[in-house]
Nucleic acid binder design. Structure first.
Lengths: 343, 343
DNA sequence: TTGAAAGCGTTACCAC
DNA sequence: GTGGTAACGCTTTCAA
């Protein structure tokens, strides 16, 4: 059905090898042969079969991306910038969602590994590293996004979550809040560190940390708005009425704002709220949401840079390899003030 | 590096073919051989090489998705449901963005075609069908999303845009608007039909259509919020002050609402606004946005169904093929009333 | 400057 | 039940 090099070779009267060389702009081909081959390839509408090339070269020019939720703007933004940079370099993205489910995550990774991907980028969900280890064991470069894992044979790109927590809390303190609650995120590096940042900021300000002002562990990045609403309702109905609320994510903050409004608590007057993520619609919300920018676009770019560097390294692997080194890129989050915390 | 069937065959003392059959659960294998092969495969941590399989079977179990903008929730939602259904059937999605640029679109399609994809799903941007024809010419099943093209050898899944335009306009009429403006979308089937629906609703209500109440053609789905703000500013500053505004998309509507607020026009009191898309954050906005639901999740599901059916058809292609038929799925959009148009 | 031989890992077809 | 032969479309190595 599709045109192959063989046909071109037959028509032009050269070998398949010669055709292959011409199409890859190899040096050692006479001007004349090159022209004839190119001409015939054009006429026939030849298109390279990347599957075949991949099989023989061992490289697929395909990168896997596995995120917990495609709808979450943070991941969509990362995907966008990652895809853009990769595409400029002839690499393509195969995107999967784990829907926040560790089992599905493992399943997806198993499948991705069957495709000889040039690299795999994962924003992991499970506390369990075995699926990730499976990836590095296979020799596929692994880049972790957003949340760190115990695994040492992977690259990492994310923001300084401790600082994110501190910035958010210090901002609430700065606008005069004294009873600051926290809707915490999942029990992984991200959730833990933001909580830690929150605690540190309180301590520095000489305010006592109170367990009852922190919500239950949330189950992840999926449906987080609904979770935010539920948890906020609980916290805001408690006897210790908070005047500031730091939410793990923007969707959670949106949920929290809904809960507050339903309880008749006005924002930002009675309750200042800040989220995390700085989603692109934050300033269009019911109450424009203050947030900590997580540098999503930059994260995608840096991840792409690591992949490209890896690909290059593969090319010149005669170099004294030595023990491989793994990148750890930690970006600085940024406070974005909006109406939800202005008072 | 990676374990192959050959190694398993050698270790167990059978042929590669036998191993292949065992791993695919072929019938004609003795219990004993099967067990030994499976056991050794486990021990070695064998993983199938899909690239090799793809080369020989001609099927990649990979589907391409090309959209104008990954950040746009509509496309993200489509991608999500499409990926989910495909994944249940062992198919994976390779996602690309054309960024609303016809040249990039063509470029991406060229590349995708080099990968023997089992199907390609596109929400096209160009008015030019030649890139799409290139796809069908290659024999790859093509599914068009959202906007129809002149090409007849492609499937289509979308909503009834004429009806979307009518529903939106009729709603504005129903809440008492008499001077209804329209921020139109790009000059393709979607933009044209929504405009047409708008005109029909006006006509039916006995209201004169006025050219000056319709904005310039927007350049597409990218940066549409900014475009919405600019166009709305122009329309709302005109001498003919509208009391209702139907926007091609939700992001445009959000931009329009910003523009209105800056001009001191209160919503919905002085201006009722409705968008299109029913994005998942619509009810969290500054003014909860009325919208026409475009059935994004259903669209993804239906597209997946078509692909699966195609894949199946390939399997049993002994059937009297006859002239291929192409699906045309047109879903019914739905009005979602919120605060931006309630008065 | 060109090409022959070999192989990438898998599956299809048919004989044993 | 099992396996040989051939093939998928391409690239690599090395000799001519």
């Amino acid at each position: 059905m599709a045109v192959t090099m063989k046909e071109i070779a037959r028509d032009v009267g050269v070998s398949v090898i010669t055709v292959s060389k011409v199409l890859r702009n190899h040096e050692d081909i006479s001007r004349k042969t090159r022209d004839r081959v190119m001409r015939r390839a054009m006429e026939l509408g030849y298109r390279l079969n990347l599957t075949a090339r991949s099989l023989v070269t061992g490289r697929s020019s395909l990168v896997g991306l596995l995120v917990p939720d495609l709808l979450h703007s943070f991941f969509a933004e990362v995907a966008r910038s990652l895809a853009a940079v990769l595409h400029e370099n002839g690499l393509y993205l195969i995107i999967c969602s784990s829907e926040g489910d560790p089992n599905l995550e493992r399943h997806q990774l198993e499948h991705l590994l069957s495709r000889r991907l040039d690299a795999i980028v994962v924003a992991p969900v499970g506390a369990d590293d075995s699926s990730l280890r499976m990836v590095t064991d296979s020799g596929t470069p692994l880049i972790l996004l957003d949340r760190q894992a115990a695994i040492k044979t992977a690259h990492f790109v994310g923001v300084n979550d401790l600082l994110a927590g501190t910035l958010a809390t210090e901002h609430l303190l700065a606008v005069g809040c004294r009873t600051i609650a926290h809707l915490r995120g999942p029990k992984n590096s991200v959730g833990d560190k933001r909580l830690e940042g929150y605690k540190r900021a309180l301590k520095k300000a000489g305010i006592l940390f109170r367990e009852e002002l922190v919500s239950e562990v949330s189950s992840g990045d999926v449906e987080s708005r609904i979770q935010g609403e539920q948890e906020a309702k609980r916290l805001l109905s408690g006897k210790l009425r908070p005047d500031g609320l730091f939410c793990f994510s923007d969707p959670m903050a949106i949920g929290a704002i809904h809960a507050a409004r339903k309880l008749g608590i006005s924002i930002p007057k009675h309750l200042a709220v800040i989220g995390c993520g700085n989603l692109h619609y934050d300033d269009s919300l019911l109450v424009p949401l203050s947030s900590i920018d997580q540098k999503s676009a930059r994260i995608g770019e840096r991840a792409a840079a690591i992949i490209l560097e890896q690909a290059l390294r593969g090319k010149y692997e005669e170099e004294p390899t030595g023990p491989k080194s793994y990148a750890k890129v930690i970006l600085r989050p940024e406070l974005v003030k909006r109406e939800s915390s202005s008072r």
